[in-house]
Nucleic acid binder design. Sequence first.
DNA 1: TTTGTTACTAAGTAATTGCTTAGTAAACGG
DNA 2: CCGTTTACTAAGCAATTACTTAGTAACAAA
Lengths: 192, 192
Amino acid sequence: MPRYKNYDENLVLEKAMNVFWEDGYKATSIRMLEKEMGINQFSIYASFKNKKELFIKAIQKYREHTAKNIYKDLLKPDAGLSELKTFLLKAADKKTAKFKYKGCLVVNTAAEIGIKDADINREVIMYYDSIYNMLRNILLNSIAKNEISSNINVEQYANFLLGVMQGISVASKTMNTKQLADFVSVAIAQIE
Amino acid sequence: MPRYKNYDENLVLEKAMNVFWEDGYKATSIRMLEKEMGINQFSIYASFKNKKELFIKAIQKYREHTAKNIYKDLLKPDAGLSELKTFLLKAADKKTAKFKYKGCLVVNTAAEIGIKDADINREVIMYYDSIYNMLRNILLNSIAKNEISSNINVEQYANFLLGVMQGISVASKTMNTKQLADFVSVAIAQIE
DNA sequence: TTTGTTACTAAGTAATTGCTTAGTAAACGG
DNA sequence: CCGTTTACTAAGCAATTACTTAGTAACAAA
């Protein structure tokens, strides 16, 4: 009986995610989203309720996106020191400049919204909680593989690496390539 | 002959700085500034040209502000490892929570604007250049005082510390106190 | 083909954005 | 007192904001 949607909610959400990633929450207008998502405002509100809910869904989508792409190798159950090193060096590399200037959507959100909105803040916390667990697992694997000393405090080092990763996201916008490489190489030296 | 301004430009700029620090560039409206600065819109435009110029002046003011307050001890010509450690531990401390949730105006700006506006980006770069020089000087002093090994690459470690400090600014919004303390203590362990 | 349900387009809402302008008040040399 | 210069207040500008609504089109069962 009913008429069917002629757009893919999952696909337009991914497009919305990219707009928010590029421009931030406040600076992204519904008109821009309308244009980039390729659907009418009415459809945006029909599918995602309002701008804030769309943004929250976009953060969740970003989590999926980074898990499938950026953190893919780090999320392998047996990922260890070599995967971590590869990741960090790549994050500081010139060739990833296109990514660099956008930074991390979640870091950008933390900086822009902070704790001013409880719902959005919850998503930020959840995101970094999953990154923390990922890092913790990598450290445990690295110890098991004898890649790093078993004397370290795993939780402490996981939090250190989490802080470094958040630092990299900002530093990718404020530092040049040499500075970024310096930052990352000293951070790596600390764990190995 | 002429009538004189009955507000202090330096004082209203400091108030503007605090509004931008709290809410960011885009989310701060001229009406809000009018209210917080305690002067009419006309006067804002007469003194600071437009919103963007006011924001840039606010960043410069922030540089003065942090130099006189937050970085006061670190900027002493002979500041060394002990000053640095005190600073980092304080940055991760619970008692500074009021500051914590605002983060750093410049990190917030880097996340929000990034390289999208060349004039604003220039201020961000300049700010962190001065922090870099401060950190480099501290490391040189620390070596001279035999507080740290003279084998380290000073520029490399200065960039590491710069990255850590940018990380702390974000982490103050995403981490709990324990996590922040972990992050900072491992970072300190790396230099001493 | 009719009917009921949902999805579309396009126009419009009030409120807010950054910024301007017209008119008046304050200062002080003459 | 006057005259000139600058600073103030308050109203108003067009453009944009997030969001809605009225009307129509598409679907599929009856």
